[in-house]
């Protein structure tokens, strides 16, 4: 007896790449005289998507595990502020540690509430988003805190390695690490198992509570690092950094082909999803559309793309 493998070509699984190519071509032709294809602009797209792609890598883990993390934007803002304040008072190294501490702290709280008490991650992280942004605003009294450490700013965003902005290094590392973790480690496999069928995963001896805890911890920590990249790039900490990033990150993950229902996940897809979101933003700005129209078109493109990418 032979299994009939369903090898019919599944264009949906490679959908994001087609979509990416198509939109790239579209803007490339339409905006060829506006410098869309100039190396500088292309590098810009990368730079602008760096934070989203970093956050989206963490988000891929969460969604593959059939959970969601809406607090990442808030965590990024909070981390930027805590980093800025700590650097001002205690120097750059303490600042970085404090930033990561923010991610670990928020992530543990999210993780504990979801895995131990059993509150849906949607609610926990929605609440946490408010708490994080509010705390950031409270600490700084709504004011931006400048960061004067050159070293910090260079490492986290303003500097460059050869021709490449250091932010790209961050997003590249996040993607590489995320990709290896999800596809090549037992931890990654356990995430997919937990998201795919939690009961079955339990029967296989997987501690699904711990997995849920860990993915939320990772997502928060990664978001805190994204907050530091904001801080370094803009040389300030501000509670508003990262606002709305959770939605861009979720859009990137889903566009990339990860199912919202868990059980599957592709980091490379997520990277292209993030790049696609960045591409669209960049193109719309270069086209000189007013912000309101940009928002409408961006929203429509994302809905359309997700609708097309949706598996039956």
């Amino acid at each position: 007896m032979k299994t009939k493998s369903l090898t019919r070509f599944d264009w949906r699984s490679s959908f994001i790449y087609w979509m990416f190519a198509l939109i790239f071509l579209f803007f490339g032709i339409l905006l060829r005289n506006d410098g869309f294809l100039s190396p500088n602009n292309l590098l810009n797209i990368f730079r602008q998507t760096a934070t989203i792609s970093v956050v989206a890598v963490g988000m891929t883990f969460v969604i593959a595990c059939a959970e969601i993390d809406l607090s990442v934007g808030g965590v990024a803002g909070l981390s930027s502020v805590v980093v800025a304040v700590t650097i001002r008072d205690h120097g750059a190294v303490a600042g970085v540690l404090a930033g990561i501490g923010v991610g670990l702290l928020v992530g543990s709280i999210n993780g504990l509430l979801v895995s131990r008490i059993g509150i849906p991650s949607f609610l926990v992280t929605l609440g946490m988003q408010g708490v994080a942004v509010g705390t950031a605003a409270l600490i700084t009294n709504y004011a931006p805190i400048p960061i004067l450490s050159d070293a910090f700013n260079r490492v986290f965003g303003s500097g460059s390695i050869g021709r490449f902005p250091s932010v790209i290094f961050w997003s590249f590392s996040a993607v590489l690490l995320g990709w290896i973790t999800l596809t090549r480690t037992t931890f990654g496999r356990r995430i997919l198992a937990t998201g795919g069928n939690r009961d079955a995963a339990e029967f296989n001896g997987i501690d699904t509570k711990r997995i849920k805890f860990t993915v939320l911890l990772i997502s928060s920590t990664v978001a805190a690092i994204a907050g530091m990249i904001y801080a370094g790039r803009l040389q300030t900490g501000r509670y508003e950094w990262g606002t709305g990033d959770e939605l861009s990150a979720i859009a990137a993950v889903i566009l990339g082909g990860t199912s919202l229902f868990g059980g599957g996940g592709t980091i490379i897809g997520t990277l292209f999803g993030a790049l696609l979101v960045g591409l669209i933003n960049n193109g719309l700005i270069l086209a000189g559309l007013p912000v309101s129209e940009q928002q409408i078109i961006r929203g429509l493109i994302i809905i359309l793309a997700v609708a097309l990418a949706k598996k039956k």
Partner: peptide, 21 residues
Amino acid sequence: FQEFSLIPELTVAQNIFLNRE
């Protein structure tokens, strides 16, 4: 198991060695 302990989104090989890859 009477009720399966398989993860539908993973392959046969991945399932066979699940959690002891």
